[in-house]
Design a protein around this nucleic acid. Sequence first.
DNA 1: AAGCTCATGTAAGTTGTTACATGATTGA
DNA 2: TCAATCATGTAACAACTTACATGAGCTT
Lengths: 188, 188
Amino acid sequence: MNLLSYGLLGLLARHESSGYDLMLRIQPFWQAKHSQIYPLLARMEKNGLLSSRWIQQSDKPDKKIYMITDKGIHALQQWTHESVSPPVTRDEMSLRLFCLWLADKGSAIRMFEERKRHFNSRIAHLEGILDAIPAENLSFGSQAFSDYVLVQKGLLNAKAGLDWCNMVLKMMAAGDVKEEHNPFILKN
Amino acid sequence: MNLLSYGLLGLLARHESSGYDLMLRIQPFWQAKHSQIYPLLARMEKNGLLSSRWIQQSDKPDKKIYMITDKGIHALQQWTHESVSPPVTRDEMSLRLFCLWLADKGSAIRMFEERKRHFNSRIAHLEGILDAIPAENLSFGSQAFSDYVLVQKGLLNAKAGLDWCNMVLKMMAAGDVKEEHNPFILKN
DNA sequence: AAGCTCATGTAAGTTGTTACATGATTGA
DNA sequence: TCAATCATGTAACAACTTACATGAGCTT
């Protein structure tokens, strides 16, 4: 039982869905390809955490719907009591910044503009999800509250990233203004 | 040549260092264990991107110092021209939030408090790095500018995460206040 | 005496990516 | 007609983690 499998279990605890659908639902919060998800679901079913049935569709390909079992619910609740491991972020851009000093300004600007586009589309996507969350009953035990909290996590993060890009672009535009007079350089 | 190897190349372009030191230097921005770094450095040396020499130490174990070769510098500069792939974040907490609605409030609060501690220690660590960056010559081509930008990236991110934790904790403390009157629920 | 830091490596296992494989329907 | 979406799977490979292995010096 790895972290991804608990994520899938958490999604299936809300409502049954196909592997394809799970892949799409988990995407914004945990990147996983279908080639990782399908075998994992099969293994989880073999271990009795899930059950499945096939749904025939006339217009689209048939699909396999997974649903969580009592054993699955139990495993999920056990997991809730364990401590959470710290986040792992692997961002090529961080590594790129190690050698920003030997890059030309033009390609640096393009890199930050590209990252701004990334954050803007992520913000748009998450705000779309946010709009779909029912505003009534946003109290602790509700699924809407879970969703709200999770989407805000991504949203605040993406906005911080966007702010950072804008800060850096302004600093680069300010050019060779001496740092004593540069309003962008703030230690704290 | 994977992303991590470019990261190591970027660090070695500044100054030569040991595998152990590289592991520590890369840690705050890309989590990698020594067991991944040592074989990678050996492979990079075999491919002519790095060279190495042993340094004897009397008080501590001997160490192997790697330095970047001309071929390594060239590879690094090539990489600078390629497009940057989007960040990948794997945070168990996001998955945990999928099923926040079936957790008890007490363990939820503990989870957020733990995450606050994580962000606080990360902020303290990054501010330590920030203080070591020379404030003079923070203009584009300098290593100090690279460092400043990179540390700000992590810092703004951690601060956004901390704000998010505090927001959620306040929402939970507000309890069953109806959402129309709850000042913490803001769409946008 | 026990555990941490420094220091380098290997072995075995898990996780994640890319590519292969198929095939109908819908929209540009 | 070309590409995308829906839908499920396998195979091969790359990336990453955990555990094994060693050993001196320093701190509690």
